[in-house]
Amino acid sequence: MTFAAAAGTVAHTTTTTAAEAQGFLSPTGVEIAFLLVGLVTFGAAVVTVTTRQLVHAALWLVVALGGLAVEYLLLTAEFIAWVQVLIYVGSVVVLLLFGLMLTRAPIGRSPDADSGNRRVALAVAVAAAVALVWVVVDAFRTTWIDLDGTPAGSTDVTGASLFQHWVLPFEALSVLLLAALVGAIVLSRRANTAAAAREATTRETATGAANGPPSGSASQPTPGPASGPARASTARRRDAEGNR
């Protein structure tokens, strides 16, 4: 690819000199801001994966994702930053909180938030972090991003590139979103129809207990005459809880 070769040569010639002029020991203001926000983001991410309170994990995830939006702003990618705020902080975290609520997550500290292989996971993560940071720092130690001038990711630039060069993937992505929507509806509808069928059979069992065993309950343990209606009513109440 000629583009990649041009990228390599041009980047090498221009950025090495700039980066040698700018050492790591005299950071610019943008770098200091990036470092501070990055520390906050990383700390929030660590708290997200280690806290034992499930709702707090979702709320710390908001801090981490918001910090990443600020990092995008510092990298002059404005459009991605606002998309990040809108989609992640606005909708994904709300979805996660809804999921926590619907699975009846405990409000306080839950002792079994972490599984038994915590130490192995920590070892794997630390090893991966050391390897990645070592390789990446070794590769891009002298590379310098020039952040002056017009922003690299304003809405104008991003929109032009997205609708000039990336129209076909964009449309394919819309089809994927539609498929995900339909899939989510199908996944939650199947449970609803199953619940409706169970409701119908429990009602049939409750009414048919007086007349004798119903036709479809051969494998089902037939409830006693006293426990039949009570069980049906508890099942109905549980369904009402689940559908709320």
Binding site: E31, F34, F42, A129, T143, I145
Partner: peptide, 11 residues
């Protein structure tokens, strides 16, 4: 800005 900062944070 050095490219190392965002890349290390990402890792």
């Amino acid at each position: 800005m050095h490219l190392a900062y965002p890349v290390v944070l990402s890792a």
